[in-house]
Nucleic acid binder design. Structure first.
Lengths: 150, 150
DNA sequence: ATCATTGCAAAAGCTTTGCATAAGA
DNA sequence: TCTTATGCAAAGCTTTTGCAATGAT
């Protein structure tokens, strides 16, 4: 399997774009983060590592990473964008606790059937899907019950 | 079944908030729109009807409508929020064409099983979920084939 | 008479963009 | 050498907020 750097390098070449240090460093960092991130935290992390890259470059690089399937946007409904690397990972969905805000990932094989049905029933060609679940984790449910009991 | 106005009136009363003309007018308009909307278009529509309500009031009212389950946020990944009324509607998901941008709604009963599994397996209490699908509609697939053939 | 709500305008995010400089190809 | 990419700062958007005035209870 190609590494994410190779994938991007190839993408860049095919498009007549340029393989730059900045893009390499950003991409490497993204694949070191095994969580979701936003532009601000990514920029901060790079800074911590002594890597000087402007936010503007991050903002300009992300659409490219997304376009070649290395990264995807994640919607956490909090007013700005979050991202995660997806290349080499199984597809997963998010379940965010409305109490503590913790995000948990889970896999759901059944969703393949949904894609299939959309293809058969609507002639739709599915590129990707994202299932976002909101609710309460066991700890927050318990906390809620105690609060209500008072 | 209670009307959306009654639902909101009750919610407002229970919370010691106030039932105002502005909130009533905004809510009525939202339930007249049988599509997705954003703050700007909602504001514009109200204006067209000679209703003077500031955007600030819309921004302040929406979280209340969401909180009492009348409205939900929709993520179309285009940099700002979209909304739709959900009270009295079956749960549905969105499939947005990456070609023409058209949004189509569809129901997917299988997702109830997903909620169930999250409850049983993780002890999670699901409040709601949203499945967003991206791909190409039949027309855009065809257009794409023609373009590539040239 | 209270106190929440409104409208306005200013402020606050986050993201994009223009432009001169740097650096891949 | 020819362009694309970068960094900076400014501009752009959407959304939020402070405050005086208004209006609901």
């Amino acid at each position: 399997m190609k590494s994410e750097l190779e994938v991007f390098r190839e993408y860049v070449r095919q498009r007549g774009l340029r393989w730059t240090q900045e893009r390499k460093l950003i991409l490497q960092k993204i694949f070191e983060i095994h969580e979701h991130f936003d532009v601000d935290s990514l920029h901060w992390l790079l800074k911590q590592n002594g890597v000087k890259v402007s936010k503007a470059s991050i903002y300009r690089a992300l659409p490219l990473f997304i376009d070649c399937g290395l990264v995807r946007e994640v919607d956490f409904s909090d007013g700005h964008w979050h991202y995660e690397h997806i290349y080499g990972h199984k597809h997963h969905n998010h379940m965010k606790c409305l109490g503590c805000g913790e995000v948990r990932e889970f896999e759901e094989p059944i969703l393949a059937q949904v894609d299939q049905r959309l293809t058969q029933e609507y002639g739709y060609s599915v590129v990707f899907h994202q299932l976002e679940v909101r609710g309460y984790c066991p700890a927050c449910q318990k906390a809620g019950e105690e609060t209500r009991a008072r």
